[in-house]
Amino acid sequence: MIFDDDLVLCECDLEPLKSFVEDLEKQHSVEVIQEPGICLTMIKAEDSLEHQQFFLGEALTTECEVSVDGTAGVGLCLGEEPVRGYCIAVIDGVNRLRGETPENVSEFIQSQRVVLEEREAKEQALVKKTRVDFKLMEQD
């Protein structure tokens, strides 16, 4: 599966995510421990034959930490996305409250996963139209 829960939250549209987290805020006491801020993630890669690891470069990352009913939640995503970083942290905190993802969170993530998968599949369908089968000159 490409879109695990975290990736769904990193790539889904911001508006539905914001609105979902606003609902969560009404049900829980949320306190910001660390304001959303930017930092770097060094990306590790390796060559495909010898598996020599190396550092490809860094990626701009947003991090945020909140407390949800006294339980810490951590939000991380690529780019400078303070709102998304906060929302991911709140959802993480809610998930950690009882040690499992509540049904309403699962449902929200699943609904967004479907949107992302459809979007990706549509792009892949366009890409697939460029599949090529070159023939040699002497072939028919």
Partner: peptide, 10 residues
Amino acid sequence: LRRNYYSEVI
């Protein structure tokens, strides 16, 4: 910027 994270191997 501070580097706070190292990724897994992509």
